[in-house]
């Protein structure tokens, strides 16, 4: 060992040459990088994907329609407001035509939108919220807490959703869309909660989380800082899936006529067309049945596109491969770092 050598080296050589702009990171740069990595690039990747773009446009359109209805900017549906059984495009005042009672079909669709959006939101928030909380707690606490929570989840999962909702709907005749949303996703959380739990278990085993625990970081901090951010992608995608489930189930229930017919809903419109006008047998009433179907179809299409697009943003592998083929410069730029780390 020659200490003199070492000394001269420490004093004499400046390894951190300042002209290495590409490699030298200041704190500000790091924040900028963080913003680039976490916010800007995902947003660009998301927007560069036509799925997300269309999904957002469609969902946005429904939100606007809901606002129009809520603010009373479009006339409410009334009986005998127009001639009966107008066909679509027959009278441009009632573009989609009218029902057997002379009600404007478009007005029916428009005014059912706000309640539907509320129902979707409350149902999806409830389902994902309960799933995240219980899944995280079970996965993180482990032991008895885990066993009890998972036993409950298993039980809840064993109950078929739709029949349960129907029985409860008959029993309690809920009319508030927020309550209905929750009712419909009453046992939806169980499956999601289970998969979130196993994700939490995986994240928990990661070295950095292990390190945080060893260093005595409080549990709530670990959950907030390490677990939740890692769950977000999965949760966001499932939020959209839950929302779609709420649409399908609620319209189905209204269509069956097991929910109270006080409110406006596309399902009720379908129910009336189907069971009172015999829309299946007569050409004249077909549009009455088909118009609400299209409303459901486009909203769920929007949600699915949104979910697919977001899946791309959050799933690095899909994201990498996607950008490898896409022409968008922003996309491929975001991928380069990914691609190289994956390959090398």
């Amino acid at each position: 060992m020659k200490p003199t050598e070492t000394d001269s080296q420490v004093g004499g050589v400046d390894w951190s040459s300042s002209n290495a702009a590409a490699t030298d990171l200041s704190r500000l740069d790091r924040y900028r990088d963080l913003y680039q990595e976490r916010v800007y690039k995902p947003a660009v990747v998301a927007w560069s994907d036509w799925r997300t773009r269309f999904g957002l446009l469609i969902v946005g359109f429904y939100v606007v329609v809901a606002l129009i209805a809520a603010l009373g900017l479009y006339p409410s549906p009334e009986t005998n407001q127009a001639p009966r059984y107008l066909l679509p495009l027959e009278n441009m005042d009632y573009v989609l035509g009218t029902t057997a009672t002379g009600t404007d079909l478009l007005a029916l669709l428009v005014h059912a939108t706000p309640e539907m959006m509320l129902m979707i939101t409350s149902g999806a928030i409830w389902a994902t919220g309960v799933a995240v909380v219980l899944g995280t707690v079970a996965g993180f606490k482990g032991g008895t807490t885990d066993r009890v929570l998972m036993a409950i989840a298993d039980f809840v999962m064993a109950i078929p959703g739709l029949p349960l909702i129907m029985i409860l709907a008959i029993a309690f005749t809920p009319e508030n869309p927020l309550v209905l949303g929750v009712l419909i996703t009453l046992n939806y959380w169980a499956g999601l909660g289970r998969s979130i739990r196993s994700q939490v278990l995986t994240i928990r085993e990661q070295n950095y989380v292990e390190a945080s625990r060893t260093m005595g970081t409080p549990t709530h901090r670990i959950i907030r800082k390490d677990i939740i951010p890692n769950l977000m992608p999965y949760v966001t995608v499932n939020f959209v899936t839950a929302a779609r489930y709420v649409i399908f189930a609620s319209v189905g229930l209204y269509f069956l006529g097991v929910l109270p017919i006080g409110a406006e809903n596309w399902g009720i419109t379908m129910y009336l067309a189907y069971s009172t006008a015999g829309a299946l047998y007569t050409i004249e009433a077909a549009h009455w049945l088909i118009a609400p179907m299209l409303a459901i179809l486009f909203l769920s299409l929007g949600l699915i596109l949104l979910g697919q697009g977001m899946d791309r943003v959050f799933n690095p592998r899909v994201r990498t491969r996607l950008a490898g083929e896409s022409e968008s410069t922003a996309g491929s730029e975001a991928e380069d770092s990914n691609a190289s780390t994956e390959i090398l």
């Binding site: 951190s16 040459s17 380069d336 770092s337 190289s340």
Partner: peptide, 10 residues
């Protein structure tokens, strides 16, 4: 060794 090795792009 100070700094880091370059990425393929730069």
């Amino acid at each position: 060794i100070e700094g880091s090795s370059p990425a393929p792009v730069n």
